[in-house]
Design a protein around this nucleic acid. Structure first.
Length: 622
RNA sequence: GCCCUUGUAGUUCAAUGGACAGAACGGAAGUUUCCUAAACUUUAAAUGGCGGUUCGAUUCCGCCCGAGGGUACCA
């Protein structure tokens, strides 16, 4: 997003009282740049010096003070050679003289609070209304790839995956809004010993059970056999230990483990029967995943399978061995020494020449860069793998790939439960499908209780409750800064009051109701508002609409949907306050009524667009 | 041990180095003859500790204390 202004703009002649009509381009600037331009000219005229934009600190005026935007004058004292108060007064007076849209100013300590006229704010609103893509950037030709989800095919998705999926999908949306061409990819971990575990358990104990025969969702069914394997393993291990063999020794002798290792060997040897079983069970899992992805509303442009890419890294390792980037130990294992970079030695190939996690990541990274012409590769992966990605990036660099610097690990925090970390072995995971179902049914109960949807048909009610339930879930997760570990309290998540998705959806539905009634009354809402005498609350709302472009740019820069979530909450909250204080359709002054309708409509549009970025739909009624 | 992240009301989350640290839930008290009360209003309540840099520190730096994660053949 280009927020820069032409560097010579401050030299443009500004004719007092003609600003509004003469220089419409200024309304496309964000407030910070606009004020910087203004202050630059004021300072130049006052003190004969041009200050750099970075020296001109503009911020939104605190609620407790009178004003819209505030200039912090401390950095300018060197130029003015006056006290903070005197400098602020000089600049304030000059600004008011130069720019008719500046209504008043006041000075408190080193802060110059500037207040704009209502006309100015209405012009800002008109500008935002006029621009349908307000805040969104035109295509910039930059191609990015983002990898997220990355599930294992031995168990269903859980709460942790939900955070990952929502982050990946929404960050992709946000980057697209910034004008980038984003390729969304999923890397499915479909091979390995853990996959064989559920396969073996199914073979031994499954009696041919299928998703069809049992009515179970495929990924859940396979997950059950993964758990079943673990139970059997523990049972057999306990028996051996009970037979008088010490634990370490016993662990190597567990029959089912020996069987599962044999199965992996067969898989790698492409034994037809094993491959067939593997394909069958994986297809069950994929059908299950697809359903969950669909419910969550996430999608991918391309899916990579580890079974098809895990060999690619090996060739790169061989190349690296050839040119001395890697080295081989006596037992045949291949390593890289990163101690000079402050890290450890890292394994790349086991002594039996099988590849490890990082080996295949090296391979897939290369493959993707070759396949797509991307400028940046973003991995949405939990922060427990920070070290892994640090190493990956370094290795790619040492292998001489120029694009290594563009590898970015979008590291997010774990999701914890009130009772602590989720542990699949202890059965404390929150299943994704169960959670989605719980949210939707809670929405259904609430709606029934409130009785607002009573005149809708069953399909319509279902549709709305789905939006609300999923909106609650998605917002609950996305409003937290991705970097931070978050706590998921199921009790709190089904509360649809306060800072929640349904609160925002409700605000949208409320505005929609007003607009519907306006339509019934044959009121035509114009594009431009002319009314000028608006209230402080209305100006606050316009100010919020007005900062959407900067907010979106910040979200993209920080890879943070939370920025959008908090923004959307702010605007909904502000509107609800306005709604209680003022009338819209019953307002007698016709121009004021139209202004309020224009503003309300724009707020609804902003809410809808922001929520869309978060992957959340908004209902017309609720 | 070493490395990384983190510590804000009772709880869950906010705050480009700026003014008296914002919300929500929970607590207390209110608002529906009025466009949707899933709303709104009022109220009590917090920067782990000690230093440093700065006109100004929740934010940057150092140490201490607490929490989480990683750490060579798991992914």
């Amino acid at each position: 997003m280009n927020l820069h202004i032409p560097c010579k703009l401050y030299k443009m002649p500004v004719i007092r009282n003609c600003f509004l009509t003469l220089q419409p381009k200024f309304y496309e600037m964000n407030m910070e740049n606009l004020l910087q331009t203004y202050v630059q000219l004021a300072v130049e005229q006052l003190y004969g010096m041009i200050v750099a934009n970075e020296q001109i600190q503009i911020q939104i005026t605190n609620k407790d003070f009178e004003g819209d935007y505030t200039l912090v004058v401390f950095p300018l004292l060197r130029i003015s050679r006056k006290t903070p108060e005197a400098t602020a007064n000089d600049i304030g007076e000059k600004l008011r003289y130069l720019y008719s849209e500046i209504k008043s100013y006041n000075v408190i300590k080193g802060f110059l609070n500037i207040k704009f006229t209502s006309e100015f704010w209405i012009q800002r609103l008109n500008n935002a209304v006029e621009n349908e893509n307000f805040g969104f950037s035109n295509a910039n030709g930059k191609k990015l790839m983002i990898e997220y989800s990355s599930p294992n095919t031995n168990k269903p998705l859980h709460l942790g995956h939900i955070r990952n999926n929502l982050l990946g999908y929404t960050v992709a949306n946000i980057l697209e809004a910034g004008g980038n061409d984003v390729v969304k990819v999923n890397l499915v971990n479909d091979r390995g010993i853990h996959i064989c575990k559920s396969m073996l358990a199914w073979q031994k104990f499954g009696n041919g059970e299928t998703p069809e025969s049992s009515g179970k969702k495929g990924d859940h069914l396979v997950g059950e056999y993964y758990v079943r394997y673990d139970r059997e393993y523990k049972k057999q291990l306990a028996e051996i230990i009970a037979g008088g063999i010490d634990e370490d020794e016993a662990k190597r002798k567990v029959p089912i483990q020996i069987e599962v290792q044999e199965m992996l060997r067969k898989w790698e040897a492409k034994d037809p029967e094993t491959i067939a079983l593997w394909e069958k069970m994986n297809s069950w899992v994929y059908a299950g995943f697809d359903k969950t992805y669909k419910e969550l509303g996430v999608s991918f442009d391309k899916i990579y399978y580890e079974s098809q890419t895990y060999l690619a890294g090996k060739n790169l390792v061989k190349e690296g061995l050839g040119n001395g980037v890697f080295f081989k130990k006596e037992d045949g294992s291949v390593w890289i020494d990163l101690t000079a970079d402050g890290l450890d030695q890292k394994l790349l190939l086991r002594s039996d020449e099988t590849s490890v996690y990082i080996t295949q990541d090296i391979g897939t990274a290369r493959q993707r860069i070759d396949e797509y012409n991307i400028e940046q590769m973003i991995y949405v992966v939990g922060n427990e793998q920070n070290y892994h990605f640090q190493v990956l990036k370094l290795i790619l660099k040492k292998l001489g790939f120029a694009w290594a610097d563009s590898v970015y690990h979008l590291s997010y925090g774990m999701v914890e439960l009130p009772e602590g970390k989720m542990k699949s072995r202890e059965g404390t995971v929150v299943d994704a499908d169960d959670l989605i179902e719980l949210m939707i049914s809670t929405a259904r109960d609430m709606s029934k209780q409130l009785g607002k949807l009573d005149d809708l048909n069953a399909a319509e009610i279902d549709n709305v409750c789905r939006m609300i339930g999923l909106g609650a879930l998605k917002y609950f997760i996305l409003k937290v800064d991705p970097k931070k570990t978050m706590l998921f309290d199921p009790k709190e998540s089904v509360d649809f009051n306060g800072n929640t998705g349904p609160f925002i959806q409700y605000t949208y539905a409320r505005i929609n109701s007003v607009l519907r009634k306006a339509n019934e009354q044959q009121i035509k809402i114009p594009q431009k508002s002319v009314y000028a005498n608006i209230s402080e609350k209305e100006i606050s709302i316009i100010k919020l609409i007005n900062i959407f472009p900067e907010t979106l740019a910040l979200a993209a820069k920080e890879f943070s949907p939370a920025v959008i979530a908090n923004y959307t909450y702010d605007i909904a909250k502000e509107f609800n306050q306005f709604y209680h204080e003022h009338q819209i359709l019953r307002e007698e002054n016709e121009e004021l009524k139209l202004f309020r309708l224009i503003m309300a409509k724009k707020v609804a549009i902003m809410i809808k667009k922001s929520m869309k970025l978060l992957g959340i739909d908004v209902p017309d009624r609720m």
